[in-house]
Design a binder for these strands. Structure first.
Lengths: 93, 93
DNA sequence: CGTCCTATATATAACGA
DNA sequence: TTCGTTATATATAGGAC
């Protein structure tokens, strides 16, 4: 989507990688927000740049998204309730 | 980005909302993957459709992304060491 | 580092089968 | 509803500030 076509592989040049990062990071966060609004979805996005800086977006709150994610995961990975009697896990954060 | 321009607000029609959801969800996940590869970033995306179905993407593992998110948050929300005597966080990374 | 500009690459809204 | 098709809307690569 620009003057030239690019291949999806790690950008070697540190400077261009940084530039591309900020542009695409903004694009991704915008898309996430649009998806959440348009489709009434609960979305959570976490991005760590290669320099370790955090960027995020969450339609509700990252906390609730993560909590919901856990619950959802727990459910789907417990297809064997018969042998799992003591299913008590606390959802923190 | 289609035949017509749209306003970013919840799509009332359930059917179109569903259609738009699957298209944009795929788009968002693709963008997330590209960002991770191109910019060597650590990305985590969690999406719950309005019907509650989970969709996700993570460059490494959602588990590690969430863990990293927590650490990152812990650090940044402790800008008041004066009143916080028991500030013991380990800086890793 | 973010911002503006502009030519292109992509994503996708509206349809049709 | 689930897929293609395609006309348009957007995102963004490249480059200059």
């Amino acid at each position: 989507m620009g003057r030239g076509k690019i291949v999806i592989r790690r950008i070697d040049n540190s400077t261009s990688r940084q530039v591309t990062f900020s542009k695409r990071r903004n694009g991704l966060l915008k898309k996430a927000k649009e998806l959440a609004i348009l489709c009434d979805a609960d979305v959570g996005v976490v991005i760590f740049s290669s320099t370790g800086k955090l960027h995020e977006f969450s339609s509700t709150s990252m906390k609730s998204v993560i909590a919901r994610y856990r619950r959802s995961k727990d459910e789907q990975q417990l297809p064997n309730p018969a042998s799992d009697i003591k299913v008590n896990h606390r959802i923190q954060l």
